[in-house]
Amino acid sequence: MDFAYILDALPDLMTGLKMTLIVSFLAIVLSCLIGLLGAVLRTGGIKPLQYAVTAYVEFIRGTPYLVQIFFIFYGLPSLGLRFSIFWSGVIALTAWASAFQIENFRAGLAAVGRGMHDASASLGLKRWQHSIFIILPLATRAALPSAMNTIVATVKNSAYLQAIGLVELTFVAVDRIAYDFRAIEMFASICVIYLICVFTISGFGYMVERRLSRPFGGR
């Protein structure tokens, strides 16, 4: 293993990492918002919306992620929807992550018992007040562990976007290997970099989880 070579490649890798982080960050934020909204629609009373969200989740879960990326980048332009590589990447990653976040938040909503609704109704709270003050915090706490998993997977799955030429971490590594054939150095380096990212995120996740669950013990 040639550490001098890795050092030499580091600035390039950092450029790639920056793109990985930007795309992942956008996808994580958007997918959490869409996930929450989708979960509400899926459990809400409006049948057509309920079916639409279910169909969306089943489509994303039932098709390969790589195919979804190609569909968005190569398929949509023939329907007149053309996005840059960057936005295609953001859309593909968000679309994938949203389906899983919808399921995570749906489980979170299901974990908020019927009793909370009874309590709020009997106290005269309006539906929106019950949603904001009671359901949202409780559902978020319940959904947090699995939502964190999906967030970590979102970061890792940004690597697929090298397939459409997005210059992110994996793309940079593969690109340099094509010139210098230093496969072990490059793949080892990006593995370490991904691991650092993932550990940082999951460490942060555990911290939040512990903090939020402190007052209510085993519940």
Binding site: G115, L125, F133
Partner: peptide, 19 residues
């Protein structure tokens, strides 16, 4: 059916304040 994420005092004041 107390709200588990709120203290006893917050449980008692939520509805009077908002309703």
């Amino acid at each position: 059916n107390l709200y588990p994420h709120l203290t006893v005092l917050e449980n008692c004041t939520l509805a009077p304040r908002w309703v």
